[in-house]
Design a protein around this nucleic acid. Structure first.
Length: 650
RNA sequence: GCCGACGUAGCUCAGGGGUAGAGCAACGGUUUCGUAAACCGUAGGUCGUGGGUUCAAUUCCCACCGUCGGCUCCA
């Protein structure tokens, strides 16, 4: 250490430079700025990385002191709270062995193996209390470089901490560290193998909530130990925890399965089997409206509609390779005339059959085949979820066959369709370009051509995108679009893939200008994805309150009394004539009762008709949100609602 | 598939070793009403399915089915 005499200089976010004696830590820096900052400091951002507050400063680094006001500090808080949770669990259940406890988007979790005990919600309360005690004790959290790794591994093994032993063995060459929890007398009360960083003391931990217990596997591998996982979250302020819980509640209210009961949307049945969705009339109307929209847009954009069978000889999936690479998700064969047949898991082979039914000239291309194709895939029972994860679903599938020269233009066209449809439904979105993964087929040139075309189209459209290196599938680079719904949640959206595999397997080609055969380029794309998932997501996006153009019932006619029955029927007939989805509620309930019911069913417009309206060929309009809009001529109302429907107002 | 919780009328839920109850919905009648719940009455359940324990099971035990929360986030 020849430099011990040299001063250490660091740069602060404002550009100023400060000098310190060697061995000074970020905490000393904070103290030198102000006592107030020192009091609030919980860590430091050193050269862009979150570090402990007591990290020694190194010459020439850029240092920013983190306080609870910096968003980055939440990670410190959550990571340390995870340690406190683990400490509490081991205090209450001494036989518990700790696995890992990372932070996640909205909080953190910790995995445990607890022989002879299964965590219950009651345990969570006890653990929370123990955590509060540890926090109140203001235990110091101290970084400790492991001097003798083998000895430490042996210690972990001796105390039964087999997971920590395994991890440490893997990281033995990364100068591994422990974090020690020390009580006020400086005695080590707990430790955890961890690379950090952490808060300086548990005293900063004030607002947290344990959320749920669930099962998990050591290293996510179902062949290894089954562990118990506690999910939790932590914030600096109790009010933030409350706000977070409120958000969870809000999301729960939008749960499509719950809204389905309220608005009579869909069902599944034990007699039928899990993951198979029945669309009730209300939701079927929404779907049919979306499908009409979808068809019109595709027709306008030069797509050809096709239909393909739901079962096919196994030979087809041998050629496509699905049997080999996707077989686990396919239903077992059925015997037809001694030949094995399969229910289709994908539409692509079928579309290729149509393409290959004749020879194609370059003049035919591009060919755009589109189908609302229903497929069946085996999903493990534990992952099924309402309409969002099912075993039978309809994809808005399309396959475009084109020349390499046409590829970029085709992708541009697809992206245009995607942007148009997603904004129609009110989603914001972001594109991700996934490039060649390690395990993949095809040549470098093919990947470069396909990936280049995808990226060029994104650029040409000036779309905001991120690159996911190596995130492509083994046979294709792709663009995935992520959607963000009304409460900011992320959904899997449209996808565009340039398939380098199937054209070769099926020998998909065309005759070029030169009279020779050339391999065709095949683009696989879905805009809505699965209609089940898309519409399920829409229910949550809209909280069950569909915009007028999608609403199952767009207007309800409510006669004040029997006297206006004839006029009410006229109004209904007139609206029907205009293609407006209208219902008549002439039950002998009070008008208030019928308004309430229509209101609760989120019917966009209620048309109250009494004697005054019957005489003047008018309707008294009530809107589900704005309330009473007053009386207007029937024809005027028709013009208004039609314009709202036609422009698909969200 | 694995771990855990749950399954009572159409819905939301109460109850609990001695064969079940409310509100809403449904049905019948009365009421004909002007912008979010009129009144009276009736009916409705082999308490998810199968097995076991028991004099007796919807309740306790086991299995199965289904639903729900998780099982990717790396010390």
């Amino acid at each position: 250490m020849s430099k011990t005499e040299t001063q250490v200089s660091v740069r602060l976010p404002d550009g100023s430079v400060r000098e310190f004696d060697p061995g000074a830590t970020a905490a000393d820096l904070a103290k030198s700025i102000s006592q107030g900052l020192y009091g609030k400091a919980v860590g430091a951002l050193i050269n862009g990385e979150i570090r402990d507050l007591f990290t020694p400063l190194t010459d020439g680094s850029e240092v920013k002191i983190l306080t609870p006001d910096n968003p980055e500090s939440l990670e410190l808080l959550r990571h340390s709270t995870a340690h406190v949770m683990a400490e509490a669990v081991q205090k209450l259940f001494p036989q518990a062995k700790i696995a890992i406890g990372p932070t996640i988007d909205d909080g953190f979790y910790y995995d445990f193996e607890i022989p002879g005990h299964t965590l219950s919600p009651d345990d969570l309360v006890k653990i929370e209390e123990e955590m509060k005690r540890i926090a109140a004790e203001k235990q110091q959290i101290v970084r400790y470089q492991i001097p003798d790794v083998d000895k430490q591994i042996a210690e972990f093994k001796a105390s039964g901490e087999k997971f920590k032993a395994e991890l440490l063995d893997e990281h033995k060459n990364d100068s591994p560290t422990l974090y020690l929890m020390k009580d006020k007398d400086g005695k080590v009360v707990w430790n955890d193998l961890c690379r950090g960083p952490h808060l300086p003391s548990t005293g900063h931990i004030k607002a947290f909530k344990l959320l749920k217990v669930s099962g998990s596997y050591w290293r996510g591998d179902e062949k290894r130990e089954q562990l118990q996982r506690i999910y939790a979250t932590a914030f600096w302020k109790a009010a933030d925890v409350e706000a977070y819980l409120k958000r969870l509640e809000e999301a729960e209210k939008r749960d499509h399965r719950k809204l389905s009961k309220q608005y009579d949307l869909f069902s599944t049945h034990e007699e039928v089997g899990p993951g198979l969705v029945f669309w009730h009339p209300n939701l079927a109307t929404v779907r049919a409206t979306i499908e009409d929209f979808w068809r019109n847009e595709h027709r306008r954009r030069g797509y050809d509609f096709v239909f393909t069978p739901h079962i096919a000889s196994e030979d087809l999936y041998k050629i496509s390779g699905h049997l080999e690479s996707y077989g686990e998700n396919m239903y077992s064969a059925m015997d037809i005339d001694d030949q094995p047949y399969r229910v289709k898991p994908m539409n692509c082979p079928g579309h290729i059959m149509i393409y290959k039914s004749k020879l194609h000239s370059y003049r035919d291309l591009p060919l755009r085949f589109a189908e609302l194709g229903t497929v069946y895939r085996y999903e493990r029972s534990g992952v099924l979820h309402g309409m969002l994860r099912v075993r039978g679903f309809t994809q808005d599938d399309s396959h475009i066959f084109c020349t390499p020269e046409q590829l970029e233009g085709e992708i541009n066209g697809i992206l245009d369709l995607i942007e148009m449809m997603m904004s129609t439904f009110g989603y914001t979105y972001k594109a991700y370009l996934s490039t060649r993964p390690e395990k993949s087929i095809g040549t470098d040139e093919e990947w470069a051509m396909a990936t280049g075309a995808l990226e060029a189209a994104l650029k040409a459209r000036k779309m905001d995108y991120e690159i996911d290196p190596g995130g492509g599938v083994f046979y294709a680079p792709k663009i995935d679009i992520k959607l963000y719904d009304a409460i900011g949640r992320e959904w899997q959206g449209p996808t565009v893939q340039v398939d380098l595999n199937l054209p070769r397997r099926f020998d998909v080609n065309y005759i070029g200008e030169d009279g020779e055969r050339h391999p065709a380029v095949m683009v696989h794309r879905a805009v809505l994805g699965s209609l089940e998932r898309f519409v399920g997501g829409l229910i949550e996006h809209y909280a069950g309150i569909f915009p007028t153009w999608l609403a199952p019932t767009q207007a309800a006619v409510l006669p004040i009394s029997d006297k206006q029955a004839a006029y009410a029927k006229q109004v209904v007939a007139r609206l029907n004539e205009e293609g407006i989805r209208v219902s008549l509620d002439d039950r002998s309930e009070t008008i208030n009762y019928r308004i309430r019911e229509a209101q609760m069913q989120q019917v966009p417009f209620m048309l109250v008709v009494g004697d005054r309206e019957a005489e003047a060929a008018s309707v008294a309009v009530r809107h589900r949100r704005s309330g009473d809009l007053g009386v207007m001529p029937l024809e005027k109302f028709i013009a208004q609602i039609k314009s709202e429907i036609d422009s698909k107002v969200i």
